[in-house]
Write a protein that binds this DNA or RNA. Structure first.
Lengths: 173, 173, 173, 173
DNA sequence: AATGAATGAGGGTTCATTCAT
DNA sequence: AATGAATGAACCCTCATTCAT
């Protein structure tokens, strides 16, 4: 990955996040990256290729985030870490994650598998904790945490800390 | 609202939902509606005007759905109706609601206020039911139900009925 | 066929003939026609659509030229008219026909059927005139006349009149 | 001429013939030749330089073909060899010659001089054979043979052998 | 109200060519 | 001699919008 390739990727991320994928022209990306427009196509083949590169990065980052949870053997810790997940994302990454949410709807594609590792880890934890419907519980929590993440990123949640403590308590932590 | 206006709106909804706002040209909308392209601009001024009309319709429908909950005085019924909300949306309307979700991200705008009536009704209900943190509880449930709605519309939820009973039980119903 | 459509067609013919199909950009055609570039695509769908319209015109003109020969019942007259055919094309049409020749090679397509009516009329005439191999004779003459036409259009034939008399004499006319 | 130069030339010939000069990019040529794109420009200066090299090769091959005829002193043999010329081209070379025909029209240039040696040899032969209009006869035959070559290469001639015997007979051979 | 021809800006993409290595 | 990253102009085409009818 050359320096210019990274500049392109960074510009694309920024602009796609700010204005949306379709509303961002490749020439804008090139300008913003201080690079000729043709170079985008040499390195990423397509505008869509650019997008895919960014999406791939998102999936990787997500898996990194999940890794810590999946490896955890203490079921209480699994649930705690899962709940804390949306709250530990630093604000500097909001733009990046906002784009991932945006693309989830803008691009037609099945993203449900992306959260599957988390759901499975939670299901296992809830089994160990003797929850009545561990699978539903895990699915529900995954979905809810996803929604909380979205709300945080859109800064439409009034008091994040309260929500976190509320949730931890709700799950007996 | 003349007959042709409605045809335009219907076509736009269908196409925006199926292909996305940016990917749908006004000429496609006109063709699909069996109407001249110019007419769109006479009636809706803009392509964005079209979009706004559709968005407005979504907000109205949403409020209709909420109305029944907001008017309910029995707190248990409020919670039950709220939980059942995403599950009573008929499949025939999935396209419509999918578009609303899509646009929520595609267009830059704050939509959190749209669900506010629901959150308030729930908060009140949770107060009456002596929940410890009624406001958090209401916000959390609203967020979760929104996420469930999204999952249903994207048909990424394996077993909707199980999820519904699970939730009802979770809230003691 | 509106006035602007004709202007586009005329410009395209002129430029395709002068510079070649591939070397002529649609914007050049539009400029030359005093028309917006988009209009080309509204009326002809494609750059190729433009080409096809011109090709179609060529085929029609060719058939007009052949019509007089095909209707002729006197076999001697058929042969005479066929031989005279390339020589009666006015210089003002050289550009047009030059383009047809050019495209015959530039575009991958089977053009052999275009001269078939002429070959058939000649074959019939040669039968009536008791030529030994009327079919070969007809095919050969068609081919030769085509080549003569090409030479005339490229103005690479030193003395056209001499060639014409020579040919007429060769076929006993 | 280094090995890589030849590979480039060969690839260019193949691709220009198959897809046309304008439709073939230098990068495709480089890829096909297993060579870097820059090398083309070092060796041939231009895309047009590549083309010229190929054209030159065509002219050389043509002259080789003509050489045998031009050296022949027996006039009957001159005519026979000329007539047989288009028919002895092996199918494996059709691509190469097809390109030459294509370029004759695609590139603006006067190619009539290329066949001049043949015309002159034929004219001399027809003089010796006491034809009435040897010059016209030679020009006509050259033109016709060129057209026959084209038809063969485009595989639009139904029965090549018949055409050859017909011609030989026509010229008393 | 309704049409659809016409526009012009901008879209993504390709391509011949250059240049540092 | 040879590479391939980089450029920037041009290419075909689409699109929202306007306007005469």
């Amino acid at each position: 990955m050359t320096e210019k390739q990274e500049k392109i990727l960074k510009s694309a991320l920024e602009l796609f996040a700010k204005e949306g994928y379709h509303a961002t022209s490749t020439s804008k990306v090139a300008n913003n990256a201080g690079v000729s427009e043709g170079l985008i196509f040499r390195h990423f083949k397509n505008k869509e290729g650019l997008l895919m590169a960014i999406l791939k990065e998102g999936e990787n980052k997500l898996n990194e985030l999940f890794a810590d949870i999946v490896m955890e053997s203490d079921p209480q810790e699994v649930v705690r870490k899962a709940i804390e997940l949306p709250f530990i994302v630093p604000e500097s990454e909001y733009e990046f994650w906002g784009l991932q949410y945006k693309l989830k709807w803008e691009i037609e594609m099945d993203y449900s598998h992306k959260t599957e590792p988390l759901t499975m880890a939670l299901a296992l934890a809830f089994v160990k904790l003797n929850y009545e419907s561990p699978q539903q519980e895990a699915e529900f929590l995954t979905l809810s945490l996803d929604a909380i993440g979205a709300a945080l990123i859109k800064r439409s949640m009034a008091n994040a800390d309260k929500m976190k403590s509320f949730l931890l308590k709700k799950y007996g932590l």
